[in-house]
Amino acid sequence: MSHPSMLISAYLDGELSRDEVGRLLDHLAGCGRCAAELEATQHVRTAVRSLPMMELPGGIVSEADPVVVPLRRNRGFLVGAAAATAAVVIAVAAFLTPAPTPVTVSDLNSRFGARVSLDPAFGPAKVVVPEIVEVGG
């Protein structure tokens, strides 16, 4: 007589096909040895499943990656440090840049007025002929 004992655990775990369940139950009905094995297997299965779930000891997760966890916490610090560095660079650049010399309207006219007046895009150059005044006679 062949004993399908390998099916017993899978039966208890709900991992048998319908056909296999039928075959095992038919066998169990007439086999005291396999029925006893089913009962004993159920006991040990229940015992292992009754083991308590233990709490995770403190500190394991943060210790698992001492670099990454603090890095996440210090991300604000890194952003602040970058901003401070940028501010220093701007201040130094401003200090080293020479102060602009004062510019008068007549300077601008003399520099840019002529350029504009010579630019064909702005139409024919406007020539201003000073009035000639004879002095004396």
């Binding site: 779930m53 233990m54 709490e55 995770l56 000891p57 394991i60 698992a64």
Partner: peptide, 27 residues
């Protein structure tokens, strides 16, 4: 984390090895 620890504990049988194993697994 807690499930990994319980798996590790039942495999190793002690807290120190289980804790080390959890850290290794997470890495």
């Amino acid at each position: 984390g807690r499930k990994i620890y319980n798996f590790a504990y039942r495999l190793t049988g002690n807290q120190a090895d289980a804790s080390d194993l959890v850290q290794e697994v997470l890495l």
